[in-house]
Design a binder for these strands. Structure first.
Length: 595
RNA sequence: GGUCCCGUAGCUCAGUUGGAUAGAGCAACUGCCUUCUAAGCAGUAGGUCUUUGGUUCGAAUCCAAACGGGAUCACCA
């Protein structure tokens, strides 16, 4: 596409010049695929050229069209409708484009660009198991990482674990009071769920205690502050900071249970990290940066000793960066962590995959880092995403309306199992092959469902209806891939080559639509990487699958008129498979050979 | 209240950065398995792109305002 489109752009430029417009600079040419209801393949919008050429849009179209069909062998015809110049490209030109593509980079990754990008995602708290919101974050981060890698970057996947603070202490208090030394292994519960249960228990106990206090005549606000269980949790946080060995030991063991649980979930999701950061290490960072900022005059100190930054020039507000007592706030620590990451990896770009409730925080953080003239400051990006809603409304842990990540995976894999059995195409599958297939279908379905939507939009998750296996779903795309694989297997048994090595004289409509779409792969890849948007690629992948299915239904492959045509259609199928696998790899959706 | 995000078919979402008669899937209705996988294909129906102004040859897209939904505006993380 690139080569052909560029050469046509050039020819159009020549046309405009030779049609008598001396010296003036060309406006940007808008060229797009022709709408299906018109004849032609690509369309030039003529309106922007009317001024420079001093003619009506129709005249412009006619004259450029005439010039092109005389000077440009790829153009086989044209028509002008209401100022749109529709150009027909001969099939041979399209075929050579595909030929060029498959002979060169194909659908493989771009060449290394020598730049590094660090992607921070997942970043869970260690007091409860992962839920659907985390799953969106994790799949976004993982897909973005793959996408950037494919686009030529070296990628560092980082997970900043929030393993410190009052919320962890709450689980610890509940455990201390009620557990009697129970362990996840003993209880037969996954570690993160085990600890999460004590967090829930804390909240129950806290509620009971405050209600009792209120019943005994204490005002509600006071009761919420005086509950012994809360005081104990606060004391525990202080003890933790003072290095109390007993508290530290409990903290360590409970966190290790959670990490085991997380690792199991990550494994099932098919993701990994290159680097873990822990807030228990990073929370002390950033104070030296505050001093540096004061010296540089970026920050200022109030009479009480607290340190602030004035961002009113940026349309924001004044923001505290250090308390009067010299202790850190969240953003202090984030400044320090940003420096730490840069020391560790020296990356040009850094992406934070964090929910949109922190939009303001990151805007402030990025402003600060730019004012502090950090070398990485202009490569920062906040990949902000919207909440996942349920039909019942917002997910709330205390209402028990969260969709647990492990439950979700289990359920969808179960659905894949039932559906597969229903269709009954799996008679000759081995048991372990089947288990793999169910995983691939189930996890793929969730992944695609969460990735196909523009990240910044809130999205609705309906547990009953959302994970469908028909229509615009991973399953349907995986099915297309399985069909393609089946074609390729059959071809190889008959000794038919899978590589594109023959050009038919002409293309059918579905062949041409598919081919033209395949040629746009790299443009979509580039667009997705540029916008940090896996959704772009997800939609491209679905469209590829749809066009292939249409081709598949309309054209017979092995019964084609000539052996050459058979070979071409096999090759077209194979290359479509390559494109789908490439998208699948980036999105983390495994494409099965058969299903 | 200030700031930011969102508003497209009954539902869930696309919409190539301003182009032609706005597209998919689900749900509903019709057809298509004796030929390569029907988890599919082809079709019917479904729209005041929240509203009102503006910018221009042209607006779902850009600007302004209003309405609706959400987030945020902590010396929490």
């Amino acid at each position: 596409m690139q080569g052909l489109e560029n050469s046509i752009r050039k020819q159009i430029g020549n046309a405009i010049r030779s049609l008598g417009t001396p010296g003036s600079t060309l406006p940007e040419l808008t060229i797009s695929p022709t709408k299906p209801e018109f004849k032609g393949d690509i369309t030039l919008v003529c309106f922007p050229l009317t001024k420079i050429m001093g003619k009506s849009p129709e005249q412009v179209g006619q004259e450029i069209g005439t010039y092109l069909s005389e000077h440009c062998s790829e153009i086989s015809g044209f028509n002008v409708v209401k100022g749109f110049l529709n150009l027909s490209i001969n099939d041979r030109a399209w075929l050579s484009e595909l030929w060029n593509l498959t002979q060169s980079e194909g659908f493989g990754p771009m060449a290394r660009n020598g730049q590094k990008v660090l992607v921070e995602f997942s970043s869970p708290n260690t007091n409860k198991p992962l839920h659907l919101g985390h799953v969106r974050n994790i799949f976004l981060g993982a897909a973005l990482s793959e996408l950037m890698e494919y686009a030529g970057f070296e990628v560092i996947r980082a997970n900043l674990i929030n393993d410190r603070g009052i919320h962890i202490c709450k689980s610890m208090v509940a455990y201390k009071r009620k557990a009697n030394g129970e362990t996840p292994a003993g209880a037969g519960i996954k570690g993160d769920h085990f600890v999460g249960n004590y967090y829930v228990l804390y909240n129950t106990m806290f509620k009971e205690e405050t209600e009792a206090l209120v019943a005994s005549g204490m005002p509600e606000a006071e009761a919420a502050e005086k509950a012994s269980i809360l005081l104990e949790a606060r004391q525990m946080l202080l003890d933790w900071e003072n290095g109390d060995p007993e508290v530290k030991a409990l903290w360590k063991i409970m966190n290790s249970w959670v990490y085991e649980g997380f690792e199991a979930s990550y494994r099932r999701m098919g993701i990994h990290f290159d680097k873990y950061y822990y807030e228990s290490d990073t929370y002390i960072l950033g104070k030296d940066i505050v001093q540096e900022g004061l010296q540089k005059g970026v920050f200022y100190k109030k009479e009480d000793g607290s340190v602030w930054i004035d961002l009113s020039g940026e349309g924001l507000d004044h923001k505290l960066v250090l308390r009067a007592d010299g202790t850190s706030v969240y953003i202090t620590q984030d400044m320090g962590t940003a420096d730490l990451k840069y020391q560790d990896f020296g990356m040009e770009r850094s992406v934070y995959v964090v929910g949109n409730e922190q939009d303001y925080h990151f805007e402030v953080l990025f402003h600060i880092l730019r004012k502090l003239e950090r070398p990485y400051a202009f490569g920062l990006h906040h990949l902000s995403y919207g909440m996942v809603d349920l039909p019942s409304g917002k997910m709330k842990s205390r209402d028990g309306t969260v969709v647990d990540a492990d439950d979700l995976m289990k359920e969808v894999v179960g659905t894949a199992r039932e559906k597969t059995a229903e269709l009954g195409k799996i008679a000759d599958f081995q048991a372990d092959e089947l288990e793999t297939l169910y995983e691939v279908l189930g996890i793929g379905a969730i992944r695609y469902f969460l990735l196909k939507v523009d990240p910044k939009k809130r999205m609705l998750f309906n547990p009953q209806e959302s994970i469908e296996l028909n229509g615009n779903t991973a399953t349907a795309i995986q099915y297309t891939h399985a069909r393609i694989s089946s074609i390729c297997r059959k071809a190889s048994q008959s000794g038919i080559g899978e590589k594109f090595n023959h050009m038919p004289a002409s293309l059918s409509k579905t062949e041409k639509d598919l081919l033209m779409h395949l040629l746009r792969f790299r443009a979509h890849l580039a667009e997705a990487a540029e916008n940090y948007s896996p959704a772009v690629l997800a939609n491209y992948m679905y469209e590829t699958s749809r066009l292939y299915n249409s081709f598949f239904a309309h054209e017979s492959i092995f019964q084609a008129e000539t052996p050459q045509l058979v070979q071409f259609r096999v090759a077209l199928s194979n290359h479509t498979g390559e494109a789908i696998r490439a998208c699948g790899k980036i999105l983390g959706i495994v494409m099965p050979e058969r299903m």
